[in-house]
């Protein structure tokens, strides 16, 4: 970068960056501070003499304990993890194959089909849950994890397909042609050459799919009803907001703990994930 005047660097680079980081991180900070703040401080009016919104001197684990003792938070975590993992795996498998087919097999209407698949991703869930609820009821899957495992792919598969299609298109087709001349069938060329090269793309799709299903709210709210079946986003909001009473401490504790697995998945794959977004494939 060519260095301009110092003020220029601050105005166009440092200050926007600081603002951006602040806006991104402040909610997390708020979550953490609220989790460990005792109730007495939480519900203190803002004009009280010792009002101290950004810090606490008496950290407590009460809210976390409440979460595990008074609610089924542990169950919710397990449910969410199971549902997110299984629907991600299903969607990835379908998405990888569909993406490959759309990118590489020259069948009639491949282009049109790709667009149609993308359009299904754009149908809002707030509309789609109504007919889906009917289907779930007919199959008597309501209030089971399978209700979500089977409905999440409705938006995850188009998403993964589209992402993988773009990724496969960016891989030089000579790579595959060379493999086929080398004696590989189309299937083997895909398994030995294309899929390994596409690992960063597959990881990106997987992480996004996992996060999307982890955070999903509407389907989980509609299709699950008994407290033991709920997922974290639904469980936390439905069990810790009673009428107009917000249990802020446990709510925030739930949100904090609920975001940990996603954070772990992210950091675990971050190397591949980042290279998946920025790295290019060269022959």
């Amino acid at each position: 970068m060519i260095e301009g005047a110092v003020w220029r660097k601050w105005v166009f680079y440092n200050i926007p960056l600081i603002l951006f980081v602040f806006v991104l991180l402040f909610p997390f900070y708020w979550m953490i501070i609220t989790t460990f703040r005792p109730d007495g401080e939480l519900y203190r009016p803002w004009n009280a003499a010792n009002y101290q919104p950004f810090w606490t001197n008496n950290p407590t684990l009460d809210h976390v304990l409440y979460l595990f003792e008074e609610t089924s938070f542990g169950r919710w975590m397990l449910n969410t993890m199971f549902i997110a993992a299984v629907s991600t795996v299903i969607s990835l498998i379908c998405g990888v194959f569909a993406g490959y087919a759309l990118a590489r097999l020259n069948f009639p209407f491949a282009g049109g089909l790709g667009t149609v698949i993308f359009v299904t991703y754009l149908v809002p869930q707030t509309l789609l849950f109504i007919p889906l609820a009917e289907i779930i009821r007919n199959f008597q899957l309501g209030d089971t994890p399978w209700a979500l495992i089977l409905t999440y792919p409705t938006f995850l598969i188009p998403f993964c397909t589209w992402l993988m299609m773009g990724y496969f298109k960016a891989i030089p087709k000579e790579l595959e042609e060379c493999a086929r001349i080398d004696g590989a069938s189309r299937w083997k060329a895909m398994v030995y050459i294309i899929l390994p090269v596409a690992v960063p793309g597959i990881l990106s799709a997987g992480i996004f799919a996992f996060t999307l299903s982890w955070n999903e709210f509407i389907y989980a709210l509609v299709f699950l009803s008994s407290p033991d079946q709920k997922t974290v986003p639904v469980g936390v909001t439905s069990e810790l907001i009673r009428g107009d009473v917000f249990f802020w401490g446990p709510l925030m504790a739930g949100a904090l703990l609920g975001s940990i697995p996603v954070a772990i998945v992210y950091s675990f794959f971050v190397e591949h994930y980042v290279s998946g977004l920025t790295g290019s494939v060269k022959g």
Binding site: P172, E174, L175, E177, C178, A179, R180, I181, D182, G183, A184, S185, I193, P196, V197, V199, V281, K282, G283
Partner: peptide
């Protein structure tokens, strides 16, 4: 005949080495 059964070898302009 598919490429694999023609007993040929090809060198591409961009080499097309398997990167992994």
């Amino acid at each position: 005949l598919p490429p694999m059964d023609r007993d040929i070898a090809m060198v591409f302009q961009n080499y097309a080495l398997y990167p992994h």
